[in-house]
Nucleic acid binder design. Structure first.
Lengths: 140, 140
DNA sequence: GTTCTTGCAAAATATTTGCAAGACG
DNA sequence: CGTCTTGCAAATATTTTGCAAGAAC
């Protein structure tokens, strides 16, 4: 995704496209899997972590990214693919490899519905499957 | 669960039942939902947090507790109900209320299977559903 | 005595905020 | 000018380790 696309994407989500935000967004696009704040810090040396954090917080508020939890290293951020601003429609399971610690999107699948007792209102869901990925499996 | 039961439970899992560990285990039993380290710190004033942490780490290694992620406040610990020491059989979804921040066990349900691509080996899974719980719903 | 356990302190890690300077309009 | 954004520093929060003293065996 080029700069113009990033700018457009930010604007579509009601975010003013500043230089920093475009850089952060580009990294999110480039990473094809959820990335943590510290990974972004490491990748983006030109921007202070507080501003990466602030960009991510803003993106989250504007539903441009969603937060993936579990695995390790705290929360990870991943681009939303749907444009529904009310709740994420593109929630998919993730796989966390306990050996190489990579988080992979299982985006061919959906998070199955769980019947909730009366009165519970679901807003989002996080499904993290843990185990060993094929790469690490073959190295055993 | 009384002290004798706790002692027995620890021994069944190959953990030497020290006074501190029994106290920590009792709190885990008493809490009917996953608790975080800081909640335990707050409840157990008599034991230093480093030792609560060490007890939990030990419990985890011996498959007496499992770790629930997502929601907030980092990881939470919950008693394993199964006695299978190889992997948790009793993984169930949890519900995190975004308003009151409580984590509830949806233990009537199972985490549905997701078909994994060839080569992936599942060890465990974490399903956290987020939204508003009935209590908070009624207060809106 | 040797090993395990504990409490305290502090290191390591992660997340979040305050604030003044600068950019933008 | 007034508002938004940024970088730096630092406050918070969280998790984890080092170590010496004491308990357990």
């Amino acid at each position: 995704m080029n700069e113009a696309n990033c700018t457009q994407l930010l604007e579509e989500h009601g975010i003013k496209p500043t230089a920093n935000r475009i850089v952060v967004l580009k990294e999110l696009v480039k990473a094809l899997r959820p990335v943590s704040l510290s990974e972004l810090e490491y990748k983006i040396l030109s921007i202070d972590k507080s501003n990466i954090f602030r960009a991510l917080t803003l993106f989250k508020e504007h539903r441009l990214v969603h937060v993936i939890e579990g695995g390790s290293e705290g929360v990870r951020y991943e681009l939303c693919h749907s444009h529904n601003h009310d709740h994420d429609e593109d929630l998919h399971p993730h796989f966390y490899c306990e050996k190489c610690q990579r988080t992979t999107c299982l985006d061919y699948a959906e998070i199955p519905e769980v019947r909730l007792p009366k009165g519970y209102e679901k807003k989002s869901a996080n499904l993290m499957i843990k185990g060993i990925c094929p790469d690490c499996q073959s190295k055993l």
